[in-house]
Simulated assay, not measured.
Amino acid sequence: MESAAVSRFGLAGILLLLPLCSFARDITDSIGEQVRINDQPQRVVALIPSLAELTADLLDHSLEKIVGVSEFSDYPPALKKFASVGPYNRVSIEKIVSLRPDLVLASFNGNAKEQVAHLRELKIPVVVVKTDTFDEVEESMRLIGAALGRKEQGAAMAQAFRTGISKIKARGKTRTSVPKVMLQVGDSPLVVAGGENILNECLGAVGAENIYSDSRLSYPRPSVEDVLHRRPDAILVLQLSDSASSRASAARWDEFKKIPAVANSKVAIIADQGLLRPTLRMIEGLLLLEKRIWGEQ
């Protein structure tokens, strides 16, 4: 029977069918789960904007392999045309299933753990990454590259990220003073960067001190009275874009003249995605953070 098939279609015909076949392989993700995926995934869904961006960067001219992204996946702009699976903190399982993915990329802290578990129960391959530290961001680039069948590209991206961080840290170590900085990420209520997230590491890298580095929360909600007590030298309001609301968030501090940041006109807006998305663009975000704290480089 086997020889008859070869005789009927010929060797060339069989070889033409081979690219349609996918070879499975196992990969261990950031939380230690072993995931069986196709050697070259053809239908990828990314569940947070930063993972969509990393996927697009690594796939380069093969964006057709992306079939779904979460809301606000807007960089590169080409991602806006892909199907949305909803907000990253509560994605639509039904929509994801309908897209028939052979690889789903998820964030350990960004996506709901029970939803990731549900997708795995449905036998959908899910690779989870962590991005709470520079080292984890670097490893996520290698891991996603490997998952996409772009291992060399992922390694090159990780090396570029490491090199960029190293240069920024080297400059940070040359600073003669260590300004105390508050990174504000939300208003009404006030939300700031605490000690358990990558923004804390960003401040340390540029030679500054996060006034809430002692918090064991990722994003504490302090009172204005507590901010007054901690006396930041700079207050930086992080926003995805410069808007009336972000300017209002910065202006709310004008009445508190006893805060050094206010007295010395060191309240500013950082309207940039770089610091908020752990991709290669985080290097650009760190350069902007340096500029806001230290002035022109």
Rank of each mutant, 00 (worst) to 15 (best):
M157V: 14
V224L: 15
Q159E: 15
V227T: 05
I48W: 07
T279G: 06
S241R: 12
Q239M: 11
V116R: 00
T55K: 03
N111C: 13
R36A: 08
D272K: 01
D57V: 14
S245T: 12
R120F: 06
H118G: 06
K169C: 06
V262P: 01
E53L: 11
E225V: 08
K81M: 05
P189K: 01
I235V: 10
M1W: 09
Q273I: 14
V126D: 07
S140Y: 03
V44Y: 02
L47E: 07
I198C: 00
P41Q: 07
Q153C: 09
L236F: 02
L275A: 04
V181M: 02
D60P: 02
N200Q: 11
S166D: 12
I31E: 14
E94F: 00
Q159D: 11
L280R: 11
G274E: 07
Q42T: 12
S188T: 15
Q115G: 12
K130G: 10
K113P: 07
A106P: 04
F108N: 11
D187S: 15
I198D: 01
L217K: 14
G285H: 02
V137R: 01
S243I: 03
V127W: 08
E296L: 12
S73I: 07
K65D: 04
A117H: 06
A250S: 08
F9I: 15
Q34D: 10
V126S: 03
V224A: 04
V178K: 15
K173E: 06
E152C: 06
S84T: 09
A156V: 04
P87I: 12
G149W: 08
K257G: 05
